[in-house]
């Protein structure tokens, strides 16, 4: 449950961007969150509303784009997409997968006034 810290991270980045780009209000925030980033979207939604109060992004809509989980199979060497961290390899059924993508936590863009 570190969604509060994540929301604070979002606020930090937005406030820096507001200074750099000279906007005074954010109406929409789009995030890219990997499947394995450990972020609970519902909890983040709640934290986002609370943390943005009094900032340029107060009342902004939060939109989350989910990025797929990617892994390398140690057994067959294939680069595969998986839905859960512990899924077997969809190619060979092997259980030893090294996650290589899906841990992203990025702010993609902002719609601003």
């Amino acid at each position: 449950m570190h969604e509060m810290s994540i929301a604070e991270g979002i606020r930090d980045v937005i406030e820096d961007a507001a200074r750099a780009n000279g906007f005074s209000r954010v109406t929409r925030v789009r995030l890219e969150i990997g499947r394995f980033a450990g972020v609970e979207t519902e909890a983040l939604d709640f934290a986002f509303d609370v943390v943005m109060r009094g900032s340029v992004a107060e009342g902004a809509t939060l939109e989350v784009i989910e990025l797929p989980g990617k892994a390398l199979c140690y057994d067959c060497g294939a680069a595969v997409e998986i839905r859960h961290r512990l899924d077997p390899c969809p190619e060979c059924g092997g259980g030893k997968l090294l996650v290589q993508g899906g841990e992203e936590m990025r702010i993609k863009d902002l719609e601003v006034l």
């Binding site: 994540i6 991270g9 979002i10 930090d12 980045v13 961007a17 780009n21 906007f23 109406t27 929409r28 995030l31 992203e104 936590m105 990025r106 702010i107 993609k108 863009d109 902002l110 719609e111 601003v112 006034l113």
Partner: peptide
């Protein structure tokens, strides 16, 4: 360009949320 978002107001950030940390 992003469908549904008005261009003049779209600012690309592409920054990790925990970039400060």
């Amino acid at each position: 360009e992003v469908p549904g978002m008005s261009q003049q107001r779209l600012i690309e950030i592409e920054t990790d949320i925990l970039s400060k940390n």
